[in-house]
Every structure is written in structure tokens, then in C-alpha cells.
Design a protein around this nucleic acid. Structure first.
Length: 266
DNA sequence: CATCTGATGTGCT
DNA sequence: GCACATCAGATGA
């Protein structure tokens, strides 16, 4: 097998720029057959990093636009962990009673929500877990990343995810690695150190352009785990790729109420 | 499959 | 003191 060189050419899309890789010799390359297959299946023809214009969308639009994009984490040794975003939630700030930034509340913890669109907001939950958000356009608005479809670096993800497990006799399945907001953070080894990082120029975390998910393939439903937010508890601010097996929780009634088109496999 | 419970630390009232 | 944008393991159907 030979390593394909990625050809970088001029892009009209101002939201993307080519991802430049250095020292990618065949012997030391991280590219695998699995990886190359994933490029054609999930990425655009070349890997391009999402830029600040992409993140500068209204919260709900960004939450939907993230579906299909690829989150990339590079470890200190150069290993890349990649996953396609398949589930998100919008936290609008302001009137949104479920948001940490409700009523314009600004604290030491949540300042990243008010920073430039594309800024990572990581917070600790239940003392032991972390959740990763990305700030959007709008004051205090951010998008929670809830689930990824693991694409690359699965063995390393499994190693990170096993840290908290007692019974290691059963290996975590592909679909169990990143199907939840804190599982995703464990798998990519993300913690408070990533709070306030800018995805558009991050050195060890960024996003790359994947394939656009059409509106008819997006399920909109209530967010998870926000019981005490009044009318905001039930608002359809969670989004996931319809029929995708890497989603954390499916909402059967929301799926049933969608206009049915031809069945599609992702 | 559904439902329950304990773990565990921090931010905020 | 209490709530918390969760998860793993256990139990029962």
C-alpha cells in the first residue's frame, strides 16, 4: 500500500483552509487503509480545517452544521484521534433556562461561552466527568458536542475510555467509545485544559470539513438531562443524524414525526 | 431492552 | 448544603 499524497489546491470556500501536514513519510505515516477509506467516505476530497467564519453562525444553525464535521485531536506524540460529529445540542443563553449562561450569567467557569465563536468551553460535571461545547454566534450561546462516530485512533480511544472501567474483560465496541458528551471527552482525553481554546487555530484540537448533512436527515428533539428548565426542557434543541448508530440516545417519537423520504444509510 | 443507584468535586445559593 | 448538560454496573423483564 502506498500513502496517497494530499493535493492542496485553491478553495473557493472561505470557511475552510487546507490542513498542512509535515514529515509524512510512508514508514512513519499515521495514515492507514482504514484512514484512507474514511477520507473518501466522510471527508471532502481533501482534508480542510474549519475556520472562524464557519463557527460564526447562530447557535441552532451551528449545532446542525456540526453534524457530519470531523473533530480531530492530536496527541503529543502526533497520534490523531478523529471522530465524525453525529449528535449536538444548542444552548442559547439569554432566555434559555437550561444554559449555564441563562439570563446573561457570566462566571469564571463559563466565560468561554462569551468568547469568539469557535472557542471551546469545557466544564466538569458530577465531579468526575467533562463536557465539551463550542461557542457560537450570539451572547453566551454554545453548542454541546454529544456524540462522535470514531474514525481514527480507536485503540487509543479505547485505552482512554478504559481508565474508569473496572471490568475490562469485555472490550468497548466501536459504537460505545464516543456516544455521550463525557465519553467523547474521555476518548479524546479532553479536560479543563481545553477550556477557552480556539478551534480555528488550535494546535492539538480542531475540526475538519466533512460531508454536509441534509435537513431531512437531521432529527430535532428535546435535550438530555435538563429536567428543571421549565418550558425550555422540551424545546427541540438536540440534533442528531437520523438512523446513525453512534448517537447516544434516540428519540423514536421525534423520528416517527419526520417526513419520511427514501431510506438512507450513513 | 428499561430502570435504578452510587460515584464524586465544584460552582453557586 | 445542594444541584449538576453523566456514566458504569446491577437488576429485572
Amino acid at each position: 500500500m502506498t500513502t496517497k499524497r494530499r493535493h492542496v489546491h485553491a478553495l473557493s470556500d472561505t470557511q475552510c483552509k487546507p490542513v498542512l501536514k509535515k514529515n509524512r513519510e510512508p514508514e512513519t505515516s499515521l495514515l492507514t487503509e482504514e484512514h484512507n477509506a474514511n477520507i473518501s467516505k466522510y471527508f471532502q476530497s481533501v482534508r480542510v480545517r474549519l475556520r472562524s467564519d464557519f463557527y460564526n453562525q447562530a447557535c441552532i444553525e451551528l449545532a446542525k452544521s456540526f453534524l457530519g464535521q470531523v473533530l480531530v485531536r492530536m496527541l503529543p506524540d502526533g497520534t490523531e484521534l478523529c471522530g465524525r460529529i453525529v449528535e449536538t445540542e444548542a444552548y442559547l443563553g439569554g432566555d434559555d433556562e437550561a444554559s449555564h449562561s441563562r439570563g446573561g450569567k457570566r462566571t469564571k467557569r463559563n466565560v468561554a461561552m462569551y468568547m469568539t465563536a469557535g472557542t471551546v468551553y469545557v466544564y466538569q460535571i458530577y465531579g468526575i466527568y467533562f463536557c465539551m461545547n463550542v461557542s457560537s454566534q450570539g451572547d453566551g450561546a454554545a453548542v454541546l458536542l454529544r456524540s462522535l462516530e470514531p474514525l481514527e485512533g480507536l485503540d487509543v480511544m479505547r485505552k482512554f475510555r478504559n481508565v474508569r472501567r473496572r471490568d475490562l474483560s469485555k472490550s468497548l465496541k466501536h459504537a460505545e467509545l464516543c456516544n455521550g458528551p463525557s465519553k467523547l471527552c474521555q476518548a479524546l482525553n479532553l479536560d479543563k485544559n481545553y477550556d477557552r481554546k480556539d478551534l480555528s487555530d488550535g494546535q492539538d484540537i480542531w475540526m475538519e470539513a466533512g460531508k454536509k448533512i441534509q435537513e431531512e436527515d437531521i432529527v430535532s428533539c428535546a435535550r438530555i438531562g435538563i429536567a428543571n428548565a421549565g418550558e425550555w426542557t422540551k424545546k427541540p434543541l438536540r440534533f442528531y443524524i437520523k438512523g446513525n448508530k453512534y448517537v447516544s440516545v434516540r428519540d423514536k417519537s421525534a423520528e416517527a414525526s419526520m417526513i419520511s423520504v427514501l431510506p438512507r444509510v450513513f
